[in-house]
Design a protein around this nucleic acid. Structure first.
Lengths: 338, 338
DNA sequence: CTCTGAGATGTTCGCGCTAGCATCACAAAC
DNA sequence: GTTTGTGATGCTAGCGCGAACATCTCAGAG
């Protein structure tokens, strides 16, 4: 418990307890046979000294690192923390531990973060998206480490993948909107060419509209700032340009909520005059004056499945290499049902 | 770029490029003098092979680990991601890298996470709060690693600290409320005895009210669920019990926003009939129909300062060991100004 | 033509720990 | 008494890399 300048080692504990380093190591790892008295002696000496094992040396010697790299674009929206929660929940029952890296939706940063993570030789990698730089893909391949690409199911995985089809999500939402009779449809989203999942939703969306001979009447994109406030502003801007819009599809729930608040303040009939829908199914929506129509992205479940795949690989168990979840639409109070 | 069963080492690169391992090491770390031609040769060989250095071995050999452990209670509310953003921003200009651990507000889990983190021998520790288990405190002391305790300034730090006084924050808010003439005051918060900062705010709050002979008229606590929805429910419950409440102080902005939405729907005059205030100054508030009164917790700045202290310690620079930031109240549209 | 020095490259050793085996003590079986 | 077995403990040899030092090479000075 005293402060020391250089860190304690197994040797310090072994000297303090009068047994070999090996025995101390065994006690601290609960490995092999150690007599109860020795165990006690060692544990009390370790505690006395305030010894914390050096995992760096341990990992090098044993060639095992109980870390799982989780690489995601952002922590600041609600979506990835929930994926993380799913991952943590599963890993907590194993020896594995998640370590998070954030890419800010930048491919080069993703590559850098991946490199950094791989240099610690983790037991597995969980990484968002199917789009990566050539180099990133090569690293994952060459690493020999199990990799699970998550969130998206529209594309080819390096190793394993767990996600939903965003293209399909866009199509399903478009179909529901058309079915409800809306005709003049606006799309509001983020100005992020690198958010491939939002892009795919939009593609699926317009594709289905096109089949009914409908085009998106208005679109608007934002970047930065408070999503709720941006949802307001964009909704206002779009309605000023095209007052006859009868539906607005938002690329995420947060801006959808902003739009909803704006329309309600203006006394506009939702969903009679204008229908609304978002995407993600965030918990926040429960507290809104009206429940926004949305589509659950199965975030927690994706985290759970991905972690299970990694955990299985570590134990040499074979598992599904590709899991596609099906998000369910929830109509809430802002999208008429047929 | 081909997949291999066991991981590549410096030796593989050295053989591929015809120079010694040491030279490869120097090239990859940009350390020491290496001729341009050799450098090229090595880099192309490394790239060809898809070699990723093993930081575990590197860290063991050099006794340096460029990681900073950041230990926080939660990722799911808006507050800690913003602290993290501040930390990352500063560390990005250094060789250091943040690694996040989450404690869920549980002291035992904090202790476990800390132990785990320290076993990787990071260059620094940034940890939320001043309250820790005896063992946790002992570990931090014994580690010889720079430690910055953040968010709170009401207490004793193990090593360094950066935060605000939550007691003072509660007092200042109480004073402003009294000054505006409110008398019948309710407090709504979280059911978390272990959230010491919320507790301290509440203590400061009641202390100042008491000096004016006022007691909190109603209180209500929640746990779990959507904060926005809980804010609604609790506000409704409290007003049903005591319809003459004229002010509600929420322990965070999210439940405050829920309350605000509820009151507006009910057509209640805010802040005429009932005033409201939250805590944190989250960005979300900008999109609300009215700006909620709140107090900025200086989250980003705390992250920045803490990271700066760690960065300075790593370079053996001396710095301030205790930084107390002063949050500013913002009256928004829900708290009358004198 | 030799010497000098600085840049370029190589060698040795050990970081703290664990796998894999060797060894030891002691009790029960013969 | 000797053997055998079993649980407890110790020893040795690296894991892959980098610090520190040793060595080599070659241009320019003398």
């Amino acid at each position: 418990m005293t402060q020391n300048n250089r860190s304690l080692t197994l040797r310090d504990v072994s000297e303090a307890s009068g047994v070999s380093e090996m025995t101390v190591s065994r006690v601290l790892r609960n490995r092999g046979d150690v007599s109860a008295t020795t165990r006690e002696k060692v544990l009390s000496a370790a505690k006395e000294l305030g010894y914390v094992p050096n995992k760096i040396a341990g990992a090098l010697a044993s060639q095992r690192v109980n870390l799982v790299a989780v690489i995601i674009p952002s922590l600041s929206n609600m979506v990835f923390p929930e994926v993380l929660a799913g991952v943590s929940q599963v890993l907590e029952d194993t020896e594995l531990q998640p370590v998070v890296g954030v890419t800010d939706y930048l491919p080069e940063k993703e590559e850098k973060v991946l490199y950094e993570m791989l240099s610690w030789r983790p037991s597995g990698v969980i990484i968002a998206g199917l789009e990566h730089t050539e180099a990133a893909r090569a690293m994952m391949n060459a690493s020999g480490i199990p990799v699970v690409e998550i969130m998206d199911a529209d594309g080819e995985a390096v190793d394993a993948m767990v996600g939903i089809s965003h293209r399909r999500a866009g199509r399903v939402m478009a179909a529901s909107i058309l079915e409800a009779g809306y005709k003049k449809i606006a799309f509001l989203g983020t100005k992020m060419p690198l958010d491939h999942r939002a892009r795919k939703r939009f593609e699926g969306f317009t594709e289905t509209l096109a089949k009914s001979g409908i085009e998106v009447a208005e679109r608007e994109f934002y970047s930065g700032g408070s999503a709720l406030a941006k949802g307001r502003e964009m909704t206002q801007a779009v309605l000023e340009r095209s007052p006859d819009i009868d539906f607005i599809y938002y690329s995420n729930d947060m801006i959808g909520a902003g739009g909803l608040l704006y329309l309600m303040e203006k006394g506009i009939d939702v969903p009679g005059q204008i229908g609304l829908a978002g995407f993600n199914g965030v918990e926040l929506l429960q507290g809104l004056p009206r429940r926004l129509a949305t589509m659950d992205a199965c975030r927690r479940e994706i985290g759970v499945k991905a972690a299970e795949i990694i955990a299985a690989s570590v134990n040499d168990n074979v598992t599904e290499k590709s899991v596609t979840l099906t998000p369910k639409i929830s109509f809430g109070d802002t999208l008429l049902r047929k």
